[in-house]
Design a protein around this nucleic acid. Structure first.
Lengths: 240, 240
DNA sequence: CTAGTGTCATATGTCTTATAAAAGACACAA
DNA sequence: TTGTGTCTTTTATAAGACATATGACACTAG
């Protein structure tokens, strides 16, 4: 029978809005046009625009403020950070996090990374290796791989001098906003190098976390591999 | 200023629907009354009922089928199982899972369990210890704690003879439906007993997973502690 | 001059109504 | 017996009217 080529009006509107987000026409933190403006622009009712925006809000791409407007979501907000960094302390409130850059280099995509990011093996990449220190405690050792073409002007000093989440830097300086991510977790034993950096004995059990992050339209644009020391922190997961 | 004691109509309807779900008036898998019926019952428009049900559907408490009706969500469906058991094989499709009951007994709540489940230490509990075997491979060793009062007639044979998820048994036999859960993950080294059951050497790195499950209205009703062997399986987590 | 208060413009939120589309049951015909 | 049209019931979509929240700004009492 006929393929599901039909799309209701509000979804077509949503697609148009998504395109404006993706293209960067509306920047993170800024307000998008009002529902009424969009309604008259697209020649539909406010309610239809509303339903389109409702779905974008449900996907955390925008957020609404009654009386003020609808705003493009951003990684600058505190709240968003905890959605992507899922470690919480066993007791007490999460404290400050210090990010120590260990290595920054340009390299070629391995077959594994290329497959994850839908690139070709050998494509230019940026690789970042760093240590996250909570208070005095080194907790996360991770490696971040990014497509070199998307992050052309990225430098070691930009990364090491940046305060706040990497995703914040990416969206403000490179116009690439991470929208969601998928993680795969395993338990692993610390090797010599990792143990030294995390301040544990070799063989110490660690959480091995592999992440693929996606920007708009489910396009994968980042691959990470991290080792988490879970002696005083745990990984939060919600099932629902 | 006045406290936020105001609640829009659709939320009041939602609360009424929730109460029908909680009380068991509408059973898992069954259809709830049509939007029109509910609208005339509560003397509001279909759209208002609709918005109430929208929120319930977003919380996975019910699901809609155009042309058929709206149904109470259930743990019987395959789809729901993967929301609560987040292990996936490194490659291939997930196979059959065998559940081996190791221990079943009634006991008193420890201070720790009591705190998690909002009970008093010493309250009667049911404790289940079991092994999940994927194919031939023992992968999960876990301990489940339940309030004895809620699960009065629960027996070892009911558990060991039941096919399918425990949550399925709970909802069909005891009218308690698990709606969501929170997990805390750490890496741990296998002890002697655990290693033997999971078929690894003592000291082998394992995923330690602690879960609190909630029924309607965020009432906690189950506490679990599991050890996951992640040699051939990984824990899936979505950030978004 | 200043602190408070009222008013207005504009934004999202709520609610209703009308109509469309999906699903299944059933009658009927080839 | 098998398909096909049609009717009923259900959720889905769309539009419009009205409510509420917010912030800016003007006005006024002190």
């Amino acid at each position: 029978m006929g393929s599901p080529t039909f799309s209701p009006l509000y979804r077509q509107i949503k697609a148009l809005l998504l395109e404006s987000l993706r293209s960067g026409a509306w920047r993170p933190g800024e307000a998008i046009p009002s529902e009424m403006d969009l309604a008259s622009l697209y020649k539909v009712s406010q309610g239809t625009v509303r339903k389109a925006i409702d779905e974008l809000a449900a996907e955390n791409l925008v957020y609404r403020r009654q009386g003020k407007g609808t705003f493009v979501a951003t990684h600058g907000e505190r709240q968003v950070r905890f959605r992507f960094l899922r470690l919480a302390p066993d007791s007490g409130e999460p404290g400050a996090v210090e990010r120590r850059l260990l290595e920054f280099r340009r390299a070629r995509a391995s077959a594994e990374v290329a497959r994850m990011l839908e690139l070709k093996a050998g494509d230019p990449m940026v690789m970042i290796r760093r240590l996250l220190v909570f208070g005095e405690d080194p907790v996360v050792l991770e490696e971040v791989w990014l497509p070199g073409t998307l992050f052309k002007g990225l430098t070691a000093s930009a990364v090491s001098e940046h305060r706040g989440a990497l995703y914040n830097l990416f969206e403000t300086q490179f116009g690439t906003r991470m929208v969601r991510a998928e993680e795969k977790l395993k338990a692993a034993a610390a090797d010599e190098a990792g143990a030294a950096l995390l301040g544990v004995e070799p063989g110490h059990p660690l959480l091995a976390v592999e992440r693929v992050s996606y920007t708009y339209s489910d396009k994968p644009v980042e691959w990470r591999r991290g080792l988490y020391k879970t002696d005083h922190y745990f990984y939060r997961s919600e099932l629902g």
